[in-house]
Design a protein around this nucleic acid. Structure first.
Lengths: 158, 158
DNA sequence: ACGGTATGAATGAATG
DNA sequence: CATTCATTCATACCGT
């Protein structure tokens, strides 16, 4: 918090929620979902929609990246390089993620019913502490996602 | 340049010119215009037509995106919440994201009359440095370019 | 203080 | 034109 906010600094609660959403399968939220998530997370501190957008982009990309490098390392460590890469796998609950487990979409994200500023502030301070231990959010997940299949073509240059 | 030259790395001058064109109202240049712009910008460094094409696509899309993902956060902000609003003006970047909406149209602009390679190279190196400070270009829009590196005007219809 | 790592932010390049 | 992926820049943070 003491940081000169030149860039977004997510709170632990925000990261927790985002991570939970990610673990529950959300990968590329739509603009609409981004708005909702951002709106919800603004409860814990300043946040913009683009922060949520970037967070998912980065998180997904870096998971992919990690996996790619792992494979690369596995190829090259035939005999001498047997240091631990495997515990990364076991500690990761991301098993069975062969299929890009996308397309599971969070339908509603209701963390708290926010009524008054006084209540929300108390709640914020409460969760801020409580978060540092272990709190599990429940997010209702639905299946939906229809987009109007747009088509278009590009001309090539060279 | 730590940049792996797998992809185009626009120079400051190139970005400046492209931005000026964009600000002057150009959004989706025709193939013809792309060719000319690319040709002109090749003066400052390697560039292909597709780079120009993509630049406009991206720039346009992201401006729209930026507008869509505009802050949205204001409820839940109250008493002690005097944070940001001002630090966004971190003077660091050349983004100079003046809240557009101006759509001002640059009428004329003359870059340089290029005569010899030696001169142009000196000029290039010069502007490369000078650019990093403060230089304002304006682009001549209107006439046709007939001889290479003699007339630096672009045709422009929008 | 540093130096390395984690991660926010940006953007070139696609794709449908 | 919307959306996504890959790569890179920038910076906060943390251990030594």
């Amino acid at each position: 918090m003491g940081t000169k906010c030149g860039r977004w600094n997510p709170t632990v609660e925000q990261v927790k929620v985002l991570t939970d959403l990610f673990r529950s399968g959300l990968r590329t939220p739509t603009t609409d979902q981004i708005q909702k998530i951002s709106s919800q997370l603004s409860f814990y501190g300043n946040i913009e929609s683009k922060n949520v957008f970037y967070w998912f982009q980065n998180h997904k990309a870096r998971e992919r990246q990690k996996r790619r490098r792992k494979v690369l390392v596995d190829e090259t460590n035939n005999d001498e390089d047997m240091r631990i890469q495997l515990d990364n796998i076991s500690s990761n609950k991301q098993i069975n993620s062969n299929h890009d487990t996308d397309e599971r979409v969070i339908e509603t994200l209701q963390l708290f019913p926010l009524n008054s500023y006084a209540e929300t502030e108390k709640l914020r301070l409460f969760t801020e502490e409580y978060m540092k231990e272990n709190m599990t959010f429940s997010c209702s997940i639905g299946a939906e996602m229809d987009h109007p299949t747009l088509d278009l073509r590009l001309s090539f240059f060279s």
